[in-house]
């Protein structure tokens, strides 16, 4: 009932003074993350942890905590989670022979439940041969072209999303744990620069929404911290799974900036930096969002 009172007061204020009501809203009726607990198939997921001591966030929250109950519910049961059709496809692809070498993923990596455990949590990861960090998508395509002698998959193809969902699932519940030191340091720094750099016609940086204003509404959307621990993620908006880079691209378009290339160095560096901001959150792949 309390909110009703605020509501009518705010409405009157809005009529009287336009923007003044926004200020009233901002101070009185702020909606932060909700308090729901993420439990899937009897397992509890970490959706909230204290931020690093010198880190930018006092508390680190999974994006799941910013969604409403209807959206949240779709991730509570693996059957209800529409991302699992891709997981099943990925599982089949895992043992499907492809390419001139006559191999499948399983030929070298055996049981994914063992060999892929923890892989998603550490991505992007330094690759000595490439001389740079590779995302999960890069790593899969490297394996396809170099070891299987098969054609690489397109970044946002159904096969790639199915494989990243299936591999990602093997790390579900494990804490995000990317390396940011050693050879990763320059990539981390580059990602950080990109995160705070204002770009586009709207002159906005990632930080403007996801660090300074998470928990508030941007028009009709409840802003999260932009964590990427649930990717590939099934979004209602997309009506399918999508990659981290697709999400970055969407954000950049929204601020009227020219998006970086999907799979390119900029987005890889940004992926590393954004992943590092969510160190310790549970991997939720495949998550469900709005």
């Amino acid at each position: 009932m309390g909110t009703r009172v605020i509501s009518s007061t705010a409405a009157k204020l809005a009529a009287a003074a336009g923007l003044a009501a926004v200020a009233v809203y901002a101070t009185v009726a702020l909606a932060g993350p909700n308090d729901n607990e993420l439990m899937v198939e009897g397992q509890k997921y970490t959706t909230e942890i204290p931020g690093a001591k010198d880190g930018p966030l006092e508390k680190v929250y999974s994006g799941w905590r910013f969604r409403n109950e209807a959206t949240q519910a779709m991730q509570l049961d693996d059957f209800d989670n529409p991302g699992f059709t891709n997981v099943e496809t990925g599982e089949q692809l895992w043992s499907t022979v492809d390419g001139e070498a006559g191999k499948s993923c399983a030929s070298c990596h055996g049981d994914a439940a063992e060999s892929m455990k923890g892989v998603r949590a550490q991505m992007p990861k330094w690759n000595e041969a490439a001389g740079k960090p590779l995302t999960l998508e890069h790593t899969i395509n490297n394996c396809r072209t170099q070891n299987m002698k098969a054609a690489p998959w397109k970044w946002e193809s159904n096969q790639m999303l199915s494989m990243t969902a299936f591999i990602g699932l093997q790390s579900r519940g494990m804490p995000v744990n990317v390396k940011t030191d050693g050879p990763m340091k320059p990539w981390y720094d580059k990602g950080k620069d990109l995160y705070y750099q204002r770009v586009g016609q709207l002159d906005m940086a990632c930080s403007g929404c996801h660090e300074e204003n998470y928990g508030k509404m941007i028009r009709a959307d409840h802003l999260s911290q932009g964590q990427i621990n649930g990717f590939p993620t099934y979004r209602s908006k997309w009506q399918k799974l999508g990659s981290i880079h697709r999400r970055f691209k969407g954000c950049m378009k929204n601020i009227r900036a020219t998006p970086f290339k999907v799979g390119g160095d900029e987005f890889t560096a940004l992926e590393l930096y954004v992943a590092s901001r969510g160190q310790g959150l549970s991997v939720e792949t495949p998550a469900v969002r709005n």
Binding site: F79, T85, N86, E88, T89, N158, S162
Partner: peptide, 10 residues
């Protein structure tokens, strides 16, 4: 389009 695959839980 992805191969159409039904899922059921009984």
């Amino acid at each position: 389009m992805a191969k159409v695959k039904p899922r059921v839980k009984v």
